[in-house]
Design a protein around this nucleic acid. Structure first.
Lengths: 226, 226
DNA sequence: CGGTTGTTTGAGGACGTTCAAGTACTGTGG
DNA sequence: CCACAGTACTTGAACGTCCTCAAACAACCG
């Protein structure tokens, strides 16, 4: 494996603790490719052929209902493994993945990765911890959808992007996708931003500024235990 | 470990593939207790002291917002490990767990369990697979909340309880909790049941009968890839 | 039998969507 | 550099879904 690729692998949470030998073994036969924005990486219902890891760029996990509706489950970026459960269980994907901004993606053959998991305890541990982290993200989102109203969800999301602190934030992707991630329409997102203006949130384009984090936190009952 | 307890452990997915030695080692110092309904097992925000596994009965994972609102994230029953991610990552619970119907619960000291994970590859693998399964449940629920309307969510949930087939179904717990799990109020749940009557769903109390599964499936765009 | 709790039903209203139009932004070719 | 199309975002009005509140009804338990 080339040195550049090796460095990227090590920056991944999944391989942060891994030995060079392991990285070499797992990475054998792996393909690294640069994928342009808007590419559909994999589609809901397919059987997983590869494990995907993002080295750079941004992707969106999309859920699709049979009647054509589409929503964003979560954004993932550099260092994230995505839709690993389908690979682990060898079960059809529950969602599709689309590249949002040009990304470098590592693809590891599914069966090869499962064998690697079976052979290496450390890798399995890293995977388990990564799944645990994602599990908590999903639970947090379900709580959001059930307990918060649209403008509060936006407020909480903005805060979580910045670790609960004030400052300037770069939104992950367009507002259409952000709206879907938050479980609302683009129109509602626009109105939600308006609502937050009085709380010190000013935004133009994909750059948003939080002026007063304390006020925003109390507005959405922000809980940073994630 | 007593023979009865041993049998229970083996029936758990987490320990289904485990050797007697491992079960004995992990179970050392574990406490098995019978917990009456309505007991709060653990509370959101606490730091995990034990890993919990249900041997029988039924529990509900509850999310609570700081303003007192409460919702049901998921039901778990015999054989399920719950809120393992908090134990694995040694992070505060994201939710509370309440016993819904009298349950036998195994409690394994958190640090002891983490050591067991570190010592045994097979246990880590089982844990990883269990997390993968739960991950898919949560993703499915997020898709539900974002893409389906209330009566459709009920239809899809009823079908999923019965593997997509027709027949009689026992609801997990009262209708108040079911409503919360589905992201609606008890009133809306009642109206949703009314809506489904014309589709062949008849229910009294906590027993519900699906007459025509095909019709219900097309109504809610049921997708059994879970 | 009355009290308590849980479910149902109805009316009104809040939140968010849909539909439609308008405005700002982006990149392209003249 | 500007006109232009194409897209994205915003704004407004009407509607739909679901929630809230209130009351009636049913079921359960003393």
């Amino acid at each position: 494996m080339p040195a550049a690729e090796y460095a990227h692998f090590s920056s991944t949470r999944l391989f942060a603790e891994a030995s060079p030998q392991l990285i070499d073994r797992v990475g054998r036969g792996a393909v690294v490719q640069t994928v342009p924005a808007h590419t559909l990486l994999l589609a809901q219902g397919e059987r997983p052929a590869h494990l995907h890891i993002a080295l750079s760029g941004r992707v969106g996990l999309l859920g699709r209902s049979p009647d054509g509706q589409e929503t964003v489950i979560e954004f993932f970026e550099a260092g994230d493994v995505f839709v690993a459960p389908a690979v682990i269980l060898d079960a059809p994907y529950l969602m599709s993945v689309r590249v949002l901004s040009e990304a470098r993606i590592v693809m590891i053959e599914a069966e090869h990765f499962r064998r690697s998991l079976a052979a290496d305890h450390g890798l399995t541990t890293a995977m388990m911890r990564e799944l645990s982290r994602h599990w908590r993200l999903l639970v947090q989102q379900i709580k959001d959808l059930k307990l918060r109203r649209a403008p509060q969800r936006l407020a909480a999301y903005l805060l979580s992007l910045n670790g609960g602190r004030a400052g300037e934030i770069a939104l992950p992707g367009g507002r259409r996708d952000l709206a879907a991630r938050l479980g609302m329409t683009p129109e509602s997102l626009s109105r939600a931003f308006n609502e937050l203006k009085s709380l010190g949130v000013s935004g133009r384009g994909s750059a948003v500024v939080i002026a007063d984090s304390a006020r925003l936190q109390s507005y959405c009952a922000f809980d940073d235990t994630v």
